[in-house]
Amino acid sequence: MGLREIIREVDLPHPPERVWTAFATSGDLAAWLMPNDFRPELGASFTFRADPAPGFDGIVHCEVLDFDPPRLWQVSWKAGKVDTVLTITLAPAPGGTRLRLSHAGFGVGTLLPRVVLGMGWTRLLRGKLMDLLTEEG
């Protein structure tokens, strides 16, 4: 139904080794993503911290599933009842790096709306819903 995976691809004007630094340490992840206690070890458990909301304690529980510099960064992503996997792959591209983000496993039986509200993401919605619905037909 096209509901299970989010994919984004962006080209960045830096070599993969440099892009990788943004995923390599807790401090770098915090600088652009969210506060966290990430450790760059396979199997390590860590959390991202967002604002709590009803039904969501504000904590995203993660585990490092794959960590292969400067190519593959994969973590489980559990927030409230959402149980997903976030995968970042980096590949050399002309002029820099192609970053591919896959956020997968949006199965059903989740209560993501509350999670999303807790993260203050409603302001991000803008007109995207209509675009998306149109796209989906």
Partner: peptide
């Protein structure tokens, strides 16, 4: 009904769009 389900996926998509912008700025 499906629009509702899409709705929250859309939130997450918007989240990643913004975060990837933040990543580019950070780099």
């Amino acid at each position: 009904g499906f629009a509702q389900v899409r709705d929250w996926i859309t939130h997450y998509e918007a989240f990643w769009d913004e975060k990837l912008d933040d990543l580019a700025a950070h780099l």
